[in-house]
């Protein structure tokens, strides 16, 4: 029996909730992984009948029975069907029936905001995904928050007590969600020179706040309300009607109903901060919904993230009315 002891080391706090989701034997193996790898662990991959793997610093390693890492898959531990069944019970708190919706979406969020992705056979009903069975692969993604990632951008987003409508453009994996989360935290906690405002987050994919049973597992600020797992357009309307936020933050807009909801929020005097997948302004113009939003001159600030100085580099900031650049060189 591997006992899980709470750990103070900030880079290892993921261990407690993640280990709770693993069967005893795999718990032992993960605990046996060398500490330098564990400190920066990104993913744990468990596939039935195949070697147990972990990813750290973007590199994959096979894990042996005693936790040693190896490059040879022959000596790696292979997950059994009992392991897989056990993980499924543990991540769902023995209540798979309560996670129908999550399983349909392909992931369950653990306490601490870590996400377990699943793959198996999809059951269709009238061409729509109804459920998943024979679940046989898990990808446990360890989430870490970068507090202070919004520090560089914040001065461009506010003027006095006002917050600008902002669109954040970024290619995938460049820290968009982390940035949104930190913006939410800063605006909702306030900081010298800025009086805190009420923030509403529509977290369609439970990524911004990483909610577990409705409670945010990430630092999103004291004046922040979260609609977890809620479709963006409906969620924005619900927040407007019921929670009177000053700022609404949402992830990955791109459907036409999102535009309608943003317009609605605008008319209600609410500031919107949203993100979208695009490498740059030109790129965004090619996407019909985004180009419509840009043409309407709704957003007052457009920030572009990239990787020129490493993940999360703030590449450009444009004003929304004449698309003039106000950030002259990339900062990180």
């Amino acid at each position: 029996m591997v006992t899980i002891t709470p750990i103070k080391e900030p880079n290892l706090i993921w261990q407690e909730p993640v280990l709770e989701a693993l069967p005893d034997n795999i718990r032992g193996m993960i605990c046996g992984i060398p500490i330098d790898i564990r400190l920066d662990l990104e993913e744990i991959r468990i596939r039935e009948g195949r070697p147990l793997m972990v990813y750290s610093h973007g590199k994959g390693y096979f894990v042996c029975k005693d936790g040693k890492l190896t490059a040879h898959m022959e000596s790696a531990y292979r997950a059994t069907d009992k392991d897989i069944r056990c993980i499924l019970q543990l991540i769902s708190d023995y209540s798979i029936y309560a996670f129908d919706e999550e399983i349909r979406n392909g992931y369950i969020t653990l306490r601490g905001g870590h996400r377990v992705g699943m793959a198996g056979k999809i059951v269709l009903d009238n061409g729509k995904i109804q459920s998943m069975k024979y679940i046989n692969s898990f990808n446990i993604r360890i989430s870490r928050e970068v507090i202070g990632s919004a520090d560089k951008l914040i001065p461009y987003l506010i003027s006095g007590r006002d917050v600008f409508h902002t669109l954040i453009l970024s290619p995938p994996q460049m820290g968009k969600t982390t940035l949104l989360r930190d913006i939410a935290r800063k605006l909702s906690n306030g900081f010298p020179g800025f009086r805190a405002v009420k923030v509403g987050i529509v977290d369609e994919r439970s990524e911004i706040a990483g909610c577990w049973q409705g409670i945010p597992q990430r630092e999103v600020g004291v004046r922040t309300d979260i609609l977890d797992g809620c479709p963006k357009a409906e969620g924005m309307m619900m927040l407007i009607r019921s929670m009177s936020p000053n700022v609404i933050i949402t992830d990955e807009i791109g459907r036409s109903e999102d535009v309608a909801a943003i317009l609605e929020a605008l008319n209600a005097g609410i500031r919107v901060i949203a993100s979208a997948h695009a490498c740059d302004l030109q790129d965004a113009r090619l996407r019909p919904v985004l180009s419509r939003l840009l043409d309407c001159r709704i957003f007052q600030r457009i920030a572009v993230l990239g990787g020129s100085l490493g993940v999360g580099t703030l590449e450009k900031v444009y004003t929304g009315d004449d698309f003039a650049q106000i950030l002259h060189k990339p900062v990180r």
């Binding site: 069944r85 019970q89 769902s92 023995y94 798979i96 029936y97 129908d100 459920s131």
Partner: peptide, 10 residues
């Protein structure tokens, strides 16, 4: 069977 299937199954 407890806990191991969807609502209908349970």
């Amino acid at each position: 069977q407890l806990g191991s299937s969807d609502k209908d199954g349970q």
